[in-house]
Amino acid sequence: MKNKLVLIALIILTISQISCSTQKNKRVIPPLSVQLWSVKDQIKIDYKGTLKKLSAMGFSGVEFANEFGPFKNKPEDLQQYLSSLNLQASGAHVSFKALNEENFKKTVSFYQKLGVDSLIIGWDKRSWHPEGVKEVVILLNKIAKKLAPYNMKTGFHNHDHEFNSFNNSTYWDYIAQNTSQNVILQLDVGWVVYAGKDPVEYVKRYPGRTITTHYKSRIPEAMKTDHKKLPIIGQDSADWSSLLKANSTIGGTKWIVVEQEEYPNNLSSLEAVALSKKGLDAYINNL
């Protein structure tokens, strides 16, 4: 009888451990957001309706790209509307100009009311210029210090040019190695793959820095003749499973941000986003 009780206890313990392990694995996957540039056509036509559709797809957040529709001067109202849809603001793309001496306080105030704590520089052509990249680094470090008292961070978003060769490495490596640890390296997976680099390697190279990561599919030029490959997550060649694991365990990633810039086979922007979301969900469910 005693042995039987011990056996039952061991079985219960094993089941409990499996259950806890499963729940833990689910918890480590960051929530999914969507960059609103993905639906830039629809958002201008029907701002509130588009947000509602994105929420219905199962997204937990949105990343802004300087389009606010009827809420242009009403960040608090927009925050309330997001909340009504069970959405959060995962971040925003801004320019260096928006964070210069003249505009800093106004920009910070607006995004604080909206609930944004990550202001990412989405584009600056100096970032792939031998002298310009040094200016970018100085600005990022300066802005990071200014934002710290507001519990906000800045960061930089790559395109393919940042992976051009520079100083026996790349411009992206120069930015990463010369900015403070609290500057977000928002890796755009699509552009990394397009540039012929491995996004998983870059997450691992700079642990804890990919606080937000853009999950975008982009087909490299060499593979565009393969018509079975499409710029849709799950219908491309990227190793999304390995990336999810790297983001969850090494990157310090708090948000995975789906971005859709191409709409193959005459898909609407919302249809393409929905397909990429579905493809990403499949990878997450199979981890």
Rank of each mutant, 00 (worst) to 15 (best):
V189W: 08
K106I: 12
H159K: 06
G122V: 09
G196Q: 05
N151F: 13
V94P: 10
G91W: 07
V94M: 12
D173V: 09
V200N: 02
W172Q: 04
M152V: 09
V136T: 11
V193E: 05
Q181D: 13
V189P: 02
F110D: 09
G115M: 06
Q112R: 15
I143R: 11
L185F: 08
I121G: 05
V133D: 08
T170G: 02
K97M: 06
Y171G: 11
N182G: 03
K106S: 15
D117A: 03
H157C: 03
G115R: 05
T179V: 15
Q186S: 10
D188H: 09
A195C: 06
W128A: 02
Y111K: 09
N178E: 01
Y150E: 12
H157Q: 05
V133T: 11
N167R: 11
G196R: 13
Y194L: 13
D117G: 01
P149R: 08
L147Q: 07
G115N: 07
L187W: 06
V137E: 03
K146D: 09
G122P: 03
S95H: 07
T179D: 14
L114F: 06
Y150N: 05
L140R: 07
D198W: 04
G190S: 04
T154K: 05
N158I: 05
A92W: 10
A98P: 00
L119S: 04
T179W: 15
P199L: 13
S90E: 01
V192D: 03
S180R: 01
K146C: 00
I121R: 06
E101P: 02
L140A: 07
N178P: 01
T170V: 09
N164F: 07
T179F: 13
G132Q: 14
I143L: 14
F166S: 03
G115L: 06
K197C: 01
P130N: 14
G91Y: 08
D124T: 11
G132A: 15
D173P: 04
Y194W: 10
S95I: 02
A195Y: 07
N100G: 00
N141H: 03
I143M: 12
L139A: 11
Q112A: 02
S169T: 14
V193C: 04
L114W: 08
L99G: 11
I138M: 04
H93Y: 14
D188K: 09
K125A: 06
I175P: 13
A92N: 11
N168A: 12
D117H: 13
S165H: 14
S180P: 00
F156P: 10
H157G: 01
L147F: 10
N100K: 00
F156T: 12
S169P: 05
S90F: 02
D173N: 15
D198Y: 05
F156D: 10
K146F: 00
A148Q: 15
G132C: 13
L185T: 11
I175Y: 14
V183M: 02
P149Q: 08
N178H: 14
G132Y: 14
N103V: 08
K105T: 15
G155F: 01
I175H: 14
F96S: 00
N182T: 12
P199C: 13
F104I: 04
T170M: 05
D198I: 08
V136H: 06
W128F: 14
D117S: 15
L114E: 02
Q112L: 03
L139Y: 02
I184A: 11
A195R: 08
N167S: 10
T154I: 12
Y171T: 11
K97R: 13
G132R: 12
I175V: 15
V137F: 06
K145G: 01
